[in-house]
C-alpha cells in the first residue's frame, strides 16, 4: 500500500458521504494532501487537533477530515478558533480559510488575530476568486482581471495576504503554492509547531471560475503558471525589483518569537489571584 493511502485511511472520515464538492483539478485536493501529511509529521493525536474552517470551497475541508471539526460562518473562523484556544490551550487549532473568507468579510478578524498572537495556525487558500458562488472578484483578484462581477475588468487592487499578516503582527508567515507540494508540506508543518500565530498563504487555482474567464487555461496550465511565477524567498533577495515584477515569493517570509497570548493571560490570572488574596 502506498504511504499516502495509509494517511488517507487514517485521516479522512470513513462515515462521510463522499464524493467531495470540488471540481476535478482543483487545488484544494493537493492542499488537503499537504495538510494531512504535515499533521502526520507533527505527531499530534487526532483528538488533540481542531480544524476550524470558514465558508467557501476550501471551507469544506473540515467535513472530510477525521479531527474535531468546526465549519463556521463566513469570515468568522478565526473568532471561533480564538474561543476554542482560550478555553482549552492544549488543543492544536488549525484554521482554514479562503481569500474572500479571510481578507474580505473576515479581514478585520484576520488582522486582529495576527496582532493578538494566540498559538493558532491560520491557512489561507488563495485562488483569487469567489469560486463557490460562481466567480466574483475577491480582495486578491488582480487589477484588470475579469470576474462575473467585473466583466469590464477589476479596478480594485489586490491584497498580498502574507505581507498583510506580517505587518499585522503574526509570529510566523509563509507562502507556498499547490504546485510546490513538498514545500507546502514543510511550511504547514512549521506553522503548526510554531508557537504563536502562524499564517500560511497557499496560492491555489480555480480554473473553473478564474482560469477559464481570464484565458489562463485549465488546471495544468494554472499549475504551470504557479511554477513560473513563484520565486523562493532567498533567491528573491538576489533579484532586482524589475525581475520580480509579476512574481511572488514563496517560503518562510517571517519567523519571530513574540509573547503568546495564552502565556501572557496566565500572568494576568496570577496577578488577579494575588490581588484577590491580598484583599482577603
Amino acid at each position: 500500500m502506498a504511504e499516502f493511502t495509509k494517511l488517507i485511511h487514517k485521516y479522512l472520515r470513513h462515515d462521510k458521504k463522499f464524493p467531495h464538492v470540488w471540481c476535478p483539478g482543483c487545488g484544494n485536493g493537493i492542499f488537503l494532501g499537504a495538510l494531512i501529511r504535515a499533521i502526520d509529521r507533527t505527531g499530534f493525536e487526532k483528538d488533540q487537533i481542531v480544524i476550524v474552517s470558514g465558508i467557501g470551497c476550501s471551507g469544506r475541508i473540515s467535513v472530510y477530515v477525521d479531527f474535531n471539526t468546526l465549519h463556521t460562518t463566513h469570515g468568522r473562523a478565526l473568532t471561533f478558533a480564538t474561543g476554542i484556544k482560550l478555553a482549552n490551550p492544549k488543543l492544536q487549532v488549525i484554521v482554514i480559510m479562503g481569500d474572500g473568507d479571510a481578507t474580505a468579510i473576515g479581514g478585520n478578524h484576520f488582522i486582529h488575530a495576527a496582532r493578538r498572537n494566540l498559538n493558532i495556525t491560520a491557512i489561507v487558500v488563495n485562488n483569487s476568486i469567489y469560486g463557490m458562488t460562481g466567480g466574483q472578484y475577491s480582495p486578491t483578484t488582480p487589477y484588470g482581471a475579469t470576474a462575473t462581477t467585473a466583466l469590464y475588468g477589476n479596478i480594485e487592487h489586490a491584497f498580498s495576504i502574507a505581507e498583510l499578516a506580517a505587518m499585522a503582527g503574526a509570529s510566523m508567515v509563509a507562502r507556498g503554492t499547490v504546485y510546490h507540494a513538498n514545500l507546502l508540506d514543510e511550511l504547514i508543518e512549521k506553522a503548526i509547531v510554531k508557537r504563536g500565530f502562524a499564517v500560511v498563504e497557499v496560492i491555489s487555482h480555480c480554473h473553473t471560475q478564474y482560469g477559464r474567464r481570464n484565458r489562463m487555461g485549465g488546471a495544468v496550465d494554472m499549475l504551470r503558471w504557479q511554477k513560473e511565477s513563484a520565486v523562493k524567498i532567498d533567491k528573491a533577495q538576489t533579484m532586482t525589483a524589475e525581475e520580480l515584477t509579476g512574481k511572488f515569493t514563496i517560503g518562510v517570509l517571517e519567523d519571530r518569537d513574540l509573547p503568546v497570548y495564552t502565556h501572557e493571560y496566565n500572568k494576568i490570572r496570577d496577578a488577579a489571584k494575588a490581588m484577590l488574596a491580598k484583599a482577603g
Partner: peptide, 25 residues
C-alpha cells in the same frame, strides 16, 4: 482571571459571539 477563567475584548460583536461559541464547544 481570578476565578481561573478568561476574559477577552474582541474586535467587534460578531467576533465576540464567535469566540463565545468556540469556548462553549
Amino acid at each position: 482571571p481570578a476565578a481561573g477563567g478568561t476574559f477577552i475584548q474582541m474586535e467587534d460583536e460578531i467576533a465576540s459571539l464567535g469566540a463565545v461559541i468556540g469556548a462553549s464547544l
